[in-house]
């Protein structure tokens, strides 16, 4: 699946998007999997209360299932307007 990062999450991870081969069943599983992979992920995901997640371009929660998901995006709280 495609994993996208925005704002300071993108800067900490060092790339805007990547394709991840994963068996994670929830967003939280994916976060654990990525965090275990390299320090830059662990740093970006160290405080989930400071992050938001969208699955297939819809805001959702970290316990959301990933079955059938094509795109997961992580970003800080939004500051539009």
């Amino acid at each position: 699946m495609d994993v996208l990062y925005f704002a300071w999450v993108r800067e900490r991870i060092g790339e805007p998007r990547e394709t991840v081969d994963t068996d994670a069943t929830t967003v939280a599983d994916l976060v654990r999997e990525l965090s275990a992979r390299e320090d830059r992920y662990a740093l970006a995901f160290s405080d989930l209360s400071a992050l938001r997640v969208a699955v297939d371009q819809e805001l959702t929660a970290f316990d959301a299932p990933l079955a059938g998901a094509r795109e997961v995006a992580f970003f800080p709280p939004m500051t539009g307007g």
Binding site: F6, A7, W8, L59, F75, P76, M78, T79, G80, G81
Partner: peptide
């Protein structure tokens, strides 16, 4: 729009840049 539209602002000042 303020809290739910996926925009993020970064400010650049003489002291540097911050989200």
């Amino acid at each position: 729009l303020k809290s739910r539209a996926p925009f993020w602002k970064k400010e650049r000042t003489a002291e540097g840049a911050h989200w």
